[in-house]
């Protein structure tokens, strides 16, 4: 074959391949359109059956049972339906679905389905609730897909059975989970249900600053006052992100025992810590610290000035008096502007 012929063959193969591809796509679309219509009709039937179940229709369970063989459609419908109902109605519907043997069917999809199906199945499984589901979700944590693992853990946490804080930290340590914002939410749930275990986990030597900060954040949100000494100790950590998380945690707990730590943090080198400390003083209503907040009104960092003004505004008459004095002080124009804005914004 001459080189000229070869070039023409390549060109014709390319054009032919493109045309064949196009034709295949159009044909596939025709097929998918009809499947999509069937799928929509199935979902409508499932929703109708679930609604019938809530109205006490006796044949509703019978109408649902054929769909156990189509767990993906059922899973999608459950997730749609679950958002519409609450409380006893939701539980009644979910019990009926559990009794149909849906847990087993959905577990099968977690193992064999496409990526999208795996994720939808684990989310639908979590929606079903109950002890059997918790066991299935625990098994799903062993999935190779990190999104399925995260969804399973989130499902357990939402069902009031999160892994222990230490176990959650292990998942990140071994690379099984990424420290995402969803992970941070689960950590909060885990620590809230077992704050003492969260405190113990804080003593681990293998924690990165990021993980330590996440744990401190969770302890702060847990409402457990036992965490105050640990948070205060972490406020002197060499890492500024850890110190910031500790101070924010103390701000959330609003415990007066944190006053000295917050006072020191107002003079921290890192602006994020100073800003968090000012916010915490305002949130905890530590009026006696109000004079120590005033110098932050002319901090070089805007966020610190803003938080300081905001904090003084929250500290009642004393704080407002200090703001008014700063607003009248022409010798400190930066502080003056911050105070004026805080007073104006505070109304």
């Amino acid at each position: 074959m001459s080189s000229l012929t070869l070039i023409w063959v390549v060109a014709l193969v390319l054009i032919g391949a493109a045309l064949a591809w196009m034709t295949a796509l159009i044909v596939a679309r025709f097929i998918k359109e009809s499947r999509s219509t069937t799928r929509s009709a199935e979902r409508r039937l499932i929703i109708q059956a679930l609604s019938g179940l809530l109205r006490g229709q006796t044949d509703a369970v019978g109408a649902l049972s054929p769909f156990v063989r189509r767990p993906q459609v059922l899973a999608e419908a459950i997730l749609d339906f679950q958002g519409l109902i609450r409380g006893a109605d939701q539980e009644r519907a979910m019990v009926a679905l559990r009794n149909l043997g849906l847990i087993e069917a959905l577990e099968g999809r977690i193992l064999d389905g496409s990526r999208d199906e795996r994720l939808t199945s684990v989310e639908a499984l979590a929606a079903l609730g109950g002890e059997e589901v918790k066991a299935a979700l625990r098994r799903a944590i062993r999935s190779k897909d990190p999104n399925v693992r995260m969804a399973a853990i989130k499902g357990l946490a939402d069902a009031g059975a999160p892994p222990t804080p230490s176990r959650l930290l292990d998942y990140v340590g071994t690379g099984e989970l990424a420290p995402s914002r969803i992970y941070a939410e689960v950590m909060r749930q885990a620590v809230a249900s077992a704050p003492l275990e969260g405190l113990q986990a804080l003593g681990r030597q293998d924690l990165t600053p990021l993980m330590r900060a996440m744990l401190l954040d969770a302890l702060g949100r847990s409402g457990a006052y036992e965490a105050v000494p640990a948070l205060a100790a972490a406020a002197t950590d060499p890492d500024p992100d850890v110190r910031t998380a500790a101070i924010r945690g103390l701000g959330r707990l609003q415990h007066p025992a944190a006053a000295e730590t917050l006072a020191s943090a107002l003079a921290d080198q890192a602006w994020t810590v100073r800003s968090a400390a000012a916010e915490a003083v305002g949130a905890a209503g530590l009026v006696r610290l109000a004079p120590t907040v005033v110098p932050l009104l002319d901090d070089p960092e805007w966020w610190v000035r803003f938080r300081a003004g905001d904090a003084l505004g929250r500290l009642g008459k004393a704080g407002r008096g200090l703001l008014e004095a700063a607003a009248a002080d022409d010798a400190r124009p930066v502080a003056q502007r911050a105070a004026e804005r805080a007073l104006a914004e505070g109304g």
Binding site: W8, A11, I15, A18, A28
Partner: peptide
């Protein structure tokens, strides 16, 4: 040769345009 190479270039172009549409679909 010019026509043949031009045809290859257009062939590639069509494959890529159709490919982008195929990704969407």
């Amino acid at each position: 040769y010019l026509w043949a190479l031009l045809a290859v270039t257009f062939g590639f172009g069509i494959v890529i345009s159709v490919g982008a549409l195929a990704l969407e679909e």
